[in-house]
Design a protein around this nucleic acid. Structure first.
Lengths: 238, 238
DNA sequence: GATACTTGAATACGTAGTACTTAATGCGCT
DNA sequence: AGCGCATTAAGTACTACGTATTCAAGTATC
């Protein structure tokens, strides 16, 4: 049996091969420097060379591999990967070094989100303010009685609105990353108990500060949320 | 004449087509929603469908376009692009909305770098400390007498070391972005006069703080550098 | 007349075969 | 030993063909 068939089966051969290979590489199954030949891949997945070439080109565009003549497709060292590519992030979160990845993403959040909140306080539209308070109130409502799923949704919505309202496209594009991290925390999660009431309160206060246009307060409060997230991570994975 | 031939000519047909098309899309030459057909592209570049398919797949992986059957390759709205992809960044910096891009990247820097400096103060190896002071001293040396090129190189080196020393891979990968922004500033640059002496001093002080392991001071000083960069941007492009 | 079904065409998706180009390797000659 | 040429493995590129999907228009039925 040469064919493979776990991830992404139902979306075209290209997606399937790409996902499988990307997951394998990011999971460290192929060490940096190791080589894959295109026809070897083609045989392994029972796909044509055209499909394999397209996949290799995409992996190359993510800086996961480098394709050189006469030598093959070589896996690049980790520190050259495009770690901001959403697909790479997803692969790494699904793979073996999920804890490391979760930590570095949380540190990233803790740098970005306070600044984003400060900007949001200055720039948020009335509608965004409304969405923000709605999300915060949703968090309050679902913060008791093991409604973790509902809580998560409101939490994600909250942070998404803040990032969007910042008016900075680079921040806005991190919405998916934050969603991924929050989801990961809940899933992975040693959150048997209800969410930290202090965190919920902070979210409500951030919504207030943004509504009132108090940039400094919004930033400071969000920074406290970030510190909380980092501490939580230290408890879970020391 | 159907053939085109400006960017990236000397590195394979694939690269050429990709660069040209990516540049055109990010420059807004094709509005979101507009469609390109693969064979139309093939004809335009006098390339085979194989090459076009590979290019489209890569553009798709950057979320610049979406390829659907029966309809063609449609350009996605701006807010869905993978704006962290180095190639997208380069295209946008080379294109029409360079100012907007430069601003959003500078805001990103101002959020990341202070935090990175704080982490670097705790984690930097002796060698990294040495590199940092070396870079700072280089900036001092070249800050007078129109040695803009040399100054730029030391400036880039400085920020790169800080980002690397932070120990966070997400931060470290922003080194290229920062280099791009700094280069852009010098080129575009209304920097006839020598660099701001205050900024140079701040860099030296950051190097000191990192060497002494004073995280809070390193962070605060770097934040002042960031504020300076933002103000400079306001002066150049109000 | 409105809705559901069929049909058709347009277009991307996938495969197969072939020829060219590059560059690492190894052999032979000096 | 060192240099250079031949070998050859691998990616690069083109072409042609068949498949699958999906949008849209037309038709039939209710």
């Amino acid at each position: 049996m040469t064919t493979e068939g776990s991830p992404g089966q139902g979306q075209g051969l290209h997606t399937h091969v790409l996902d499988t290979l990307g997951l394998a590489i990011t999971a460290g199954e192929y060490l940096p420097g190791s080589v894959l030949r295109t026809d070897e891949i083609a045989e392994r997945f029972d796909a044509s060379r055209t499909v394999v070439r397209e996949v290799v080109r995409v992996l190359e565009s993510m800086h996961l591999v480098e394709s050189r003549r006469r030598v093959g497709v070589t896996v690049r060292p980790t520190d050259e990967w495009n770690v901001y590519d959403p697909r790479v992030i997803r692969w790494r979160l699904a793979g073996t070094d999920r804890p490391r990845q979760l930590r570095s993403l949380t540190v990233l959040r803790s740098a970005i989100e306070p600044v984003a909140a400060g900007l949001a306080a200055r720039l948020a539209t009335p509608q965004q303010c409304a969405e923000l308070t709605e999300a915060a109130l949703g968090m309050v409502r679902t913060s008791r009685g093991h409604q973790l799923e509902g809580y998560l949704q409101h939490d994600i919505a909250f942070h998404r609105v803040v990032l969007n309202a910042s008016g900075n496209e680079m921040f806005a594009r991190l919405g998916d990353v934050v969603a991924e991290v929050l989801t990961g925390r809940t899933e992975h999660a040693v959150m048997f108990h209800d969410p930290d009431p202090a965190a919920v309160t902070l979210h409500v206060q951030v919504a207030e500060a943004v509504r009132e246009g108090d940039a400094e307060r919004a930033e400071a409060l969000t920074r406290r949320i970030a510190v909380g997230a980092l501490e939580e991570l230290d408890v879970l994975a020391p």
